[in-house]
Simulated assay, not measured.
Amino acid sequence: MEDNLKRINKYLSEVGYCSRREADKLIEARRVTINGKVPEMGTKIAPDDIVEVDGKTISNNKERFVYLAFNKPVGIVCTTDTRVEKDNIIDYINYPKRIFPIGRLDKASEGLILLTDDGDIVNKILRASNNHEKEYIVTVDKPISQTFIERMANGVPILDRVTKKCEVRKLSSHEFKIILTQGLNRQIRRMCEYLDYEVITLKRVRIMNIKLDLPIGNYRELTKNEFQELNKLLEHSTKHYKSNKHNGGH
């Protein structure tokens, strides 16, 4: 039984409600209850205990929300408007609950996209989009030069600005890897176009700590470890974000 018990601050952190430090402040302010009673600092809870913050139940927070990783095929559109696009992501996945994509990935691109019904985490991820890493594998229409790699890495003028420095590595004659911490509209395609290269295929293989490990067209739930790590990264990055009105797909 003791194995199933966990400290209340750890529990609130694990379900993604707040950090342990913030949980301690809530407990100190007597805003947390366990089975209707105000706990002491360091109180441990069992799985069937009812935890509330300001009278709102937090128990089973993770079960209430869905967090999916999906390997989007080329041709599927990242919209929740099922009337407009017949090839939209929502109809394609056909999940039994109402979910929505976090950010977007262009129709012509494939790879990892996250979907959820948790509006809070969507806002956190989109607000932090200038801080978190997204990794792509790209093939282009002609051999990749060292100059191309260096210029892509150091910044290219698109959309009235110069792109942020990023990590770029050549994988083969026509293929490279790029890690962005920026979400400008069609950023990679525009960067390549500026340098007179055309993107043939573009696949996103990682968002922050979530890696693409699925066959194309398949989805899976995030693991508990992935979800916890994602929350830790967001907790850090939302304190340092800058708004980005050009946020878009690739």
Rank of each mutant, 00 (worst) to 15 (best):
L5S: 10
R7I: 00
N9E: 11
N9D: 13
K10T: 04
Y11L: 05
Y11W: 06
L12H: 13
S13C: 13
E14D: 13
V15Y: 11
V15A: 01
G16D: 00
C18I: 00
R20Q: 07
D24M: 03
D24T: 02
L26A: 02
L26I: 06
E28L: 15
E28R: 10
R30Q: 11
R30Y: 09
R30M: 09
R30E: 12
R31E: 15
R31G: 04
V32K: 12
E40H: 15
E40G: 15
M41H: 14
M41K: 15
M41I: 10
M41E: 09
T43G: 07
K44Q: 12
P47H: 08
D48P: 04
D49P: 06
I50L: 08
I50C: 07
I50H: 10
K56P: 00
I58A: 03
S59E: 07
N61S: 09
K62F: 01
E63L: 08
R64A: 11
V66L: 03
L68H: 00
N71E: 13
V77M: 02
C78Y: 03
D81Q: 08
D81M: 00
T82I: 14
K86T: 13
K86W: 08
I89M: 04
I90S: 06
D91C: 00
Y92M: 08
I93N: 02
I93S: 04
I93A: 05
N94S: 12
Y95R: 00
I99Y: 02
L105V: 01
L105R: 03
K107H: 04
A108I: 14
S109Q: 02
S109R: 03
E110P: 06
G111Y: 05
L114P: 03
D118W: 06
G119M: 07
V122T: 15
L126H: 03
R127P: 09
A128T: 06
S129Q: 12
S129L: 03
H132R: 01
K134N: 00
I137Y: 03
I137F: 05
V138Y: 03
V140T: 09
P143E: 13
P143L: 10
I144S: 11
F148K: 14
F148A: 14
I149P: 03
M152H: 06
M152G: 07
A153W: 05
G155Q: 04
L159W: 08
L159T: 03
L159P: 02
D160T: 14
V162Y: 11
K164S: 12
K165Q: 13
C166T: 08
V168I: 01
K170N: 12
L171I: 15
S172I: 11
H174C: 15
H174I: 12
E175T: 15
I179Y: 05
T181P: 01
Q182E: 12
L184Y: 07
M191D: 01
E198C: 09
V199L: 03
T201R: 13
K203Y: 08
R204E: 06
V205I: 15
M208V: 13
I210F: 05
L212H: 11
L214D: 02
L214G: 00
Y219W: 14
R220I: 04
E221V: 02
T223Q: 02
E226S: 07
F227Q: 08
Q228Y: 14
L234I: 01
T238C: 10
K242E: 15
K245V: 09
G248W: 00
G249P: 13
H250P: 15
